[in-house]
Amino acid sequence: MDLFLQAISHAFSLIVHLDPVLTGIIVLSLKVSGYALIIATVLGLPAGAFLGLKRFPARDLAISTINTFMGLPPVVVGLFLYLLLSRKGPLGFMGLLYSPSAMIIAQTVLAVPIVTALCHSAIMSVDPIIRQAARTLGATDTQETLAVIREARYGILSALLAAFGRVMAEVGAILIVGGNIAGYTRVMTTTIALETDKGNFELALALGIILLAISFLVNAALHFVRKKGMVHTS
């Protein structure tokens, strides 16, 4: 019990004093997940819109595949990326293994199916009359698609928040490709895993508290966005 209380009080002191190691890790976490989310949005939103609005052969297959990839086990993603990026792997020449870039790639791989699938369902939930209305008013194909995306904006924002929450909390993939190098590739989740292992609970707990707080903020934002989206949809 003593150990626990002591660890908690130390953890809070680290947070309150903005310990540079702690803040460095938090900043890197936010950066890695932030970049991953941006890339995943650039890829996943158009893909989701395409799946939602265009008819093509194998569309159902594509949707099922994306939904399956949503539940991709992170360690498996980590393993595959490791094999790709390791020195002897096909992408080994890029020298990305054990770098923040590798971690961004790993989180992007995890986030793309989430963003795609959730954007797809957000876009599917837009009343088809919206597309028709845009068209009757003289919209081009692109403008029509943008009108639908604008209509789905709250759902899309929810999708992005959900993906961000998911990759922030993830540990399996980035641990494998990031390697947990102090001051270089250590992010919140990997540090928690490592420090707990070593018995250094203060830093682990401090990061755990921050991670929970971020997760809380993401969920609060998610709730807010959903509520706002609900107000005028009847």
Partner: peptide, 9 residues
């Protein structure tokens, strides 16, 4: 003008 308007949100 469609029978059902389809107003934007």
């Amino acid at each position: 003008v469609l029978a059902r308007t389809g107003v934007f949100n």
